[in-house]
Design a protein around this nucleic acid. Sequence first.
DNA 1: GTCCTAGTAAACAACC
DNA 2: CGGTTGTTTACTAGGA
Length: 693
Amino acid sequence: MMQESGTETKSNGSAIQNGSSGGNHLLSCAGLREGRSNGETPAADAGAADLAHVQQQQQQALQVARQLLLQQQQQQQVSGLKSPKRNDKQPALQVPVSVAMMTPQVITPQQMQQILQQQVLSPQQLQVLLQQQQALMLQQQQLQEFYKKQQEQLQLQLLQQQHAGKQPKEQQQVATQQLAFQQQLLQMQQLQQQHLLSLQRQGLLTIQPGQPALPLQPLAQGMIPTELQQLWKEVTSAHSAEETAGSNHSSLDLTTTCVSSSAPSKTSLIMNPHASTNGQLSVHTPKRESLSHEEHPHSHPLYGHGVCKWPGCEAVCEDFQSFLKHLNSEHALDDRSTAQCRVQMQVVQQLELQLAKDKERLQAMMTHLHVKSTEPKAAPQPLNLVSSVTLSKSASEASPQSLPHTPTTPTAPITPVTQGPSVITTTSMHTVGPIRRRYSDKYNVPISSADIAQNQEFYKNAEVRPPFTYASLIRQAILESPEKQLTLNEIYNWFTRMFAYFRRNAATWKGAIRTNLSLHKCFIRVEDEFGSFWTVDDEEFKRGRHIQRGRPRKYCPDENFDELVAHNPSLIKNMQSSHAYCTPLNAALQASMAENSIPLYTTASMGNPTLGNLASAIREELNGAMEHTNSNESDSSPGRSPMQAVHPVHVKEEPLDPEEAEGPLSLVTTANHSPDFDHDRDYEDEPVNEDME
DNA sequence: GTCCTAGTAAACAACC
DNA sequence: CGGTTGTTTACTAGGA
C-alpha cells in the first residue's frame, strides 16, 4: 500500500522520505510553500489564527475540487447513462497519484502522543490542535466522498465508451476537469504542508530525525489508508483506461508536485513514467460500486430545494445543472468566495470549539465521578482505582529502602492493574495526616487480596495512603505470607514493598504497626528459639476488639502456661502457623486466657511458677507434634528456619467472650482463683492488679 | 456533647 | 551501647 506511494515517489525522482536528510519533510514543503503562486508569506509566528486560515484555505480548495467534480457529474448526467458493472481489466493508462499526497495530514496518534509528551503545549494550543485535527478529518471524509463520486463517474464513462461509442469531446472535457481537479488537490496539499510547517514552527509538532516524514505516515484516523488508496487507484485506473481509448491525454502524476520538495509549483504536473504499475493494483470492489449506485446524483451540501445554499446567496436554481453553473460562475475561487468560506470556517470552528468544551466538560464530569469515589474520605475504596497522584513527589521522596516491586508471596495472587490512561493526576490525593474510618474499619470487614491487588501497582508507585487501617494491612500481610506468619521486620518490609506511602516516615508507621500488633486481640505473637513472629486470628479480627487498656496483658512465656496446655492438649494441634489453624489456636488460647489472664498474669508477674511449667510443656509438645514440613519460607523471612513453624507460644492473654472460655480451661481458671475475669469488661477498672504489684 | 475507634507519639523494658 | 521489638499510655481527631 504505502510502498506503492514510495515507488511512485521514487519514480518521479523526488525523494520524499529522505529528501531532507533528516526525514523532515516539512522543510522541503517550506520551499514548496514559498513558491506558491499566491505569494502568501509564511507566518513566522504562526498562531492559532494563522492555522485557522490555513484550514480555511484547505477547505476552500476542497470546495473547488468538489465543484469540479459536480461539473463532471453534470456531464455524465447529460450523457444519460447508467453505470453497470465496470470492467476490471482496462488498459493501463493510469493517473497514478501518490496516496500520501491524497491523504490529508491528519496527525497520527503517535504524533499526538509525541506532542503530548513534549509537555510544552498550553491548553489553548491543544485546543487549536484538536480543532485542526477535526477539520482535517472532515476533509478526509469529504475527499472520500469525492473519490467515490469520481469513481462512479469514471465507471460511467467507461461504460459509455464500451457501449455507446466514443465521445471525444466530452472525454476531453472530463480530462480537463480532472486536471483542474488535480491541480486543486495539489493546492490543497500544499496548504496542508504549510499548515504542518506552521505547526512545527510553533513547536506543536516535532518531526524527529528517525521518524518518517509526517505526510508519508499512513492514515490512522478518518479513512483507512488502504481504502483511500484503493479508491484512488480505481479512479485513476478507470480514467486512464478512458484516456487510452479515447484521447491523447497524458497521464498525470501528482505525486511529486505535492509531496516532494522538488516540485516548487502546483503546476508542475509531470508525466508519469510508471503508469503501468497501477494497472495490476486496480481491484474492483463491488461494495464500493454498489454504494456508488445509491448515491444521489444531485445531492450537494450547497444545493437544496432549488436554492443555492452558499452563505448569503440563496439564488434560485431551477435544477441541479443550473445550480452547478451558478456555483461556478458566482462562487468561483475569488476573494469574495474565500472570505465567505472563511466566515463559514469560523462558524464551524465555533461549533467545534463548543463541542470541544462540552467534551471537556463531559470528561471532567466523568473524571470527577470516578475520582470522587477514591477520595480518602470515601470509606469504601473502589477496586478500580483510577485516580492517582503525581509520582514525582513519591519518586523524589521515596526512601532508599523502597523495595523492588515483586509479588509478596506465591500465595498472594496479584492481578495486574490497568495502568496508563487510568491514572489521573491529582495532587489532592496526597494525604498526609491520619485518616479515620478507612475501608474495612467498620465491622472489621477484612480486605481481600483483590482489594489490594487490583490497586497494587497504584499503591506501589503512588505515595497515597491506603485507605485501610493498620490492622487490616497487618492482617493482609500476614495472610499473604506462605505460612501465615511474619516477623515484625517482615511486616515492615511488606508495607514498604506494597505501598509507596510507607516508604517515608518509617518511625511513625512502624510504631503504629507495633502498637496495633500489641493492641489488637487478633494479632498473636508467637515465639520460638529463633525469635518471634506474628500470626492473625481472622475471627478475632472480624470482631475487631482491642486489648483492654489499663490492664496488664503480658506475661512471662515460661510461666503459668504449661499448666494451661496441660489442661488443654488440643491446643497443640492449633499451634501451627498457617491461617487455618491460627484461628482455632487463638480461640482456644484466648479462651483460656479469658479465664486465666488476669490472675495468671498477675501471678506470673509475681512469680507464679505454674505457667512457666505450662509453657515449657506446650513447647515440648509442639516440637513433637508438629513436624512442620512446610519449609517454604517467605522471601521476606530469611532468618527463620523451617522449624520456626514449631512455636512455643507466646500469646497475648486477652480473654474472649465468656461463651468461648469454656472447656478444660476452666480448670485453669478455677485453679487460679480468678472469679472476676470471666468478663471482658471487668478489666476496665482494674487497679487491683496494679495495686497488687 | 459523648462515646468509640484509629492514628500518633512517647516512655519504657527486654532483647540482640 | 545502640538498635530492635514489644507494651503501655496519653492524646487527638473523625464518625456515630
